[in-house]
Design a protein around this nucleic acid. Sequence first.
DNA 1: TATGAATGAGGCTTCATTCAT
DNA 2: CATGAATGAAGCCTCATTCAT
Lengths: 198, 198, 198, 198
Amino acid sequence: MTSGLAEKRREKYEAILKAALKVFAEHGFFNSQVSKIAREAGVADGTIYLYFKNKEDILISLFREKLGSLVRKFHEHVHEDDRADEAIRKICELHFTELEKDVQLAKVTQLELRQSSRELHSEISKALKPYIQLIEDVLVRGIEQGIFRRDLDVKLTRLLIFGAMDEVVSSWLISGRRYSLSAQVDKTVDFFLRGLRA
Amino acid sequence: MTSGLAEKRREKYEAILKAALKVFAEHGFFNSQVSKIAREAGVADGTIYLYFKNKEDILISLFREKLGSLVRKFHEHVHEDDRADEAIRKICELHFTELEKDVQLAKVTQLELRQSSRELHSEISKALKPYIQLIEDVLVRGIEQGIFRRDLDVKLTRLLIFGAMDEVVSSWLISGRRYSLSAQVDKTVDFFLRGLRA
Amino acid sequence: MTSGLAEKRREKYEAILKAALKVFAEHGFFNSQVSKIAREAGVADGTIYLYFKNKEDILISLFREKLGSLVRKFHEHVHEDDRADEAIRKICELHFTELEKDVQLAKVTQLELRQSSRELHSEISKALKPYIQLIEDVLVRGIEQGIFRRDLDVKLTRLLIFGAMDEVVSSWLISGRRYSLSAQVDKTVDFFLRGLRA
Amino acid sequence: MTSGLAEKRREKYEAILKAALKVFAEHGFFNSQVSKIAREAGVADGTIYLYFKNKEDILISLFREKLGSLVRKFHEHVHEDDRADEAIRKICELHFTELEKDVQLAKVTQLELRQSSRELHSEISKALKPYIQLIEDVLVRGIEQGIFRRDLDVKLTRLLIFGAMDEVVSSWLISGRRYSLSAQVDKTVDFFLRGLRA
DNA sequence: TATGAATGAGGCTTCATTCAT
DNA sequence: CATGAATGAAGCCTCATTCAT
């Protein structure tokens, strides 16, 4: 039997994060009040501070948790022995479908990702790093497999790929999600692979 | 001699915007105080409100002015009879060199571009529209010139290109500008053109 | 023991109103700062806003509470089966003695009663209505009892009576309360009854 | 020929007062901005301060001028050899018709008359004094003429009369002037005279 | 005299955080 | 652990008044 106590704690922790995701997505970080998150989570204002250091810590934790589980999902679906071009397709597919499934996460990711505070920035970079790294790994593998060009600058190219996908998601959000995001996968991947192939 | 009155007004208006750019770049919109902008501009707090409706209006005006002059610069350098591939190169070159020259503008663009407030968002989208449109125009021209693929989705592709460049700039900023941004032009354009060419 | 929670809340609510009464009486609504009321009430500035929507709401609530309890007092002392002329005497007596007892209330009533803001005005009219109505009821009863003239315009006359008493109080306040207000009851009522009697 | 200079000055002085009357009547003293008065008067903000010490001085001057001319009008129409009861009728008639003719003055008189500041209060009392005194004079004369009761307390009764009329005007204003004010003269005077007659 | 741009003190209100229960 | 009332610092904005032109 797992500890009922720690489990209870974990549950409330997640309830608060879920509430925060909703509130941040709706109003943005600076226009979200801790009290609103508390109400949404069904706890008292003070309770928040038993689980998080401060308001910013909520956002950071949120990114860590959410991006962590996203990255895990990528790793589950992209394997070392996959062909690199298939891996790139898989990555783009996951990127678009996962954010299409979880609009709140998409909003927070796109709208709050580039906020201000020093601490925030480095934390978010840290949380994103494994994903960017995954893309780089695939690029390296593709070169080794002879599928991608040898002269690729993998550090630069991973940014081009991530940024391009990121912008497609942002634009889709700003448009009010008036079209299918996942329907953009094929054309996007096509553009990438032409840029990558040997 | 030309009207000293309107000129004086224009000068102060620009002094405030210049101060705002500096303060916003350093602290982000929500962590910037109007009083700090006033001090930086060498005017009284109240003076700000003779030139701007409120704090948000400063940011919006800043975008309008800065992006407006950027877009003008693009139009000066990219001509209708240019080869589309050369135009793409020119765009990327300007994008990187202009932001490398004006780090504060880069910071505000990257950090504040995706802020929250409804009004803000639509204003910024409006300000960016002509640039995104310019990219699209070049793509269309490229297809007409037989240089780019006929099956390009220009609406999607303009986002891929803009997003990729945008991410390179962001990453460069986050890195603390430890390398040359304009040195990335060649490899970036190479990647683009492979994705675009017929 | 009864609920200490709601009781506590009520206590603080009344402490703030009491403080507001004092401050408003001394400086007038527009020259009173919320911070001064808070200090007088022994609470933090922010606490005020846990009990009142804004500064104006304090004044409105003050009127509602104070005039409400005044009106209640009138109803306790003036009964349906009283002779109408005795009822008029009672009303004037209470009007003068109650305001003589509570100078701060008198000041706020006289000085702030006719302030500007739309909302304020209608709220105050609403709070005063039952009192003016009480006077009218007594006039109607007097006519029915055959004590007062049948040709009285009760809507007009209630204003004459209220206005006359009101002015006596104002003048007494402005004079610096250099004479007894309640000592004016007999002569005032005498004047009224001559005007009313059949 | 009168001095064109002083005349010009007088004209602008009155233009500002007229503008102030309009603005104060519409928004109340505390919600009226000096700049709004200036705009209404067609002068620059700074010009106001060439004619008035400060904002409060505008209100005080306004009262002095307006009440002064009102009082003059009363003196023109009420003569020493009139019967006192006719004089009372004349006073009430003028009170109602003059304020009915000049709604702005009525509003300022009723709404701003009892505002806060120390200086203001005493100034207004001073400006009102001659009018209240006029009523008292008539009362005294009425007693001498054997028309009014010998036992009248003239100091008190002048307040009752003024207050009653004042309230009728206020109520008429608050009602949105939905009925004729001057139509109330007969019944009002009837009430007064019953209270006064020997 | 007249202007009106500039000033800057000051007030209302919000909200992250604390702490007594 | 949980609560939520209370705190009080801080910021945006207004507007009476001044002064250089």
